[in-house]
Design a protein around this nucleic acid. Structure first.
Lengths: 194, 194
DNA sequence: ATTATACTTGAGCGATCGTTCACGTTGTTC
DNA sequence: GAACAACGTGAACGATCGCTCAAGTATAAT
């Protein structure tokens, strides 16, 4: 017989994601997490195994949320390219105020961790590759619709988008001028290499 | 009377810079630093005051080294624009192997720290602004020499360069294809907005 | 009611954190 | 060579780290 879930696992993971995203892996203590998700150490370790294990689940959650968000913009826009633009603007501009951290949790983790946490690093890289692939798909759709030159490499354009997002989100942390950020993103979609 | 320096302050700061740069602020313990710079806690605290104090000195050191490096490339190139390009290639491509960390120490710190370390965050932002100003100067010199359209805003171009560096260095961490990175940087200098 | 099972609890483990300070050593001064 | 100043030393402080586990509580099955 299935037992009553004593805690809402998804809600716990969401809260843990936000805290890890905000403070980073090393600066987030299990004490901090205990307070944030309102669970005692024993329960946390029974459910997630370790600090690393919980972090890995939050990385998965973060990536799923990002991919779902991109799908959301695709549904709302008939144009794949416009959907991508809206997605990027949301990440770079809106996230500075709404999200736990303006920086991408995956980029931040790539920057923070070393080979001492090789497995978490590998997971993070794999998730970034997943998102890259989503960009490839949406760019190929835009090419099908004639919004982008079909002769251009969708993979290279996707790389370019990911580089711009990483750069812009870092920049936004020191210069949160929304008009400027908006213009930079518009430029990105109206000039080379698009 | 000045006493004999019992330790080489500059060498100690260099070693501390490399460790902080590699591991980040939170993941670097004072024990780690003691081993790396071969000093006992009392001496470190007498010389630098605190973990924060030493970190602040390494940020200053890192920024000075970067500015000196840019000056070096300016001396070696008659063209300011080529000097800037060589500087960027060095940061993005060579640093992946040579340096303690492929990521810029300042960007990494911006990503890692929160308002809990507001002063270190402010120092870091100020240093990024310093480097931005160096880019403005070199771009203005390139405009004087007719290498860049004088009607373009040197400040905006400098911002663009800093954003590209942040994005490319993150990208290089997951895809260290030197040919691709080289092409991306060449594209950056031969297409919009340059 | 009793037993079995599932889940939570929180005191506390050994280790490590950033930091301090009484003390030892070294070099200078008179 | 005695006194002093300057610096380095490392044991050890209280706090916190990630984590464990014996005990407690709640629900389900008999």
């Amino acid at each position: 017989m299935a037992n009553i879930a004593k805690f809402d696992r998804q809600e716990v993971i969401n809260k843990a994601t936000n805290l890890y995203w905000k403070k980073g892996f090393h600066a987030t203590s299990m004490r901090n997490l205990q307070d944030e998700i309102d669970m005692r150490p024993g329960s946390i370790y029974a459910a997630f195994g370790s600090k690393d294990g919980l972090f890995k689940e939050t990385l998965r959650n973060y990536t799923d949320l990002g991919i779902a968000q991109l799908a959301h913009y695709k549904e709302q826009n008939s144009s794949p390219l416009e959907a991508l633009r809206a997605f990027v603007k949301n990440l770079v501009i809106d996230s500075q105020d709404n999200a736990p951290n303006g920086i991408c949790m995956l980029s931040k983790t790539i920057g923070e961790l070393t080979e001492e946490n090789q497995e978490l690093l590998n997971v993070t890289k794999a998730h970034l590759a997943e998102i890259l692939q989503e960009f490839v798909v949406i760019i190929e759709e835009a090419q099908q619709k004639g919004e982008i030159d079909k002769h251009k490499s969708a993979e290279e354009l996707a790389n370019h988008v990911q580089i711009q997002i990483a750069g812009l989100r870092t920049f936004a942390k020191i210069n949160n001028d929304k008009n400027k950020l908006n213009n930079l993103i518009d430029d990105m979609f109206t000039h080379y290499p698009f």
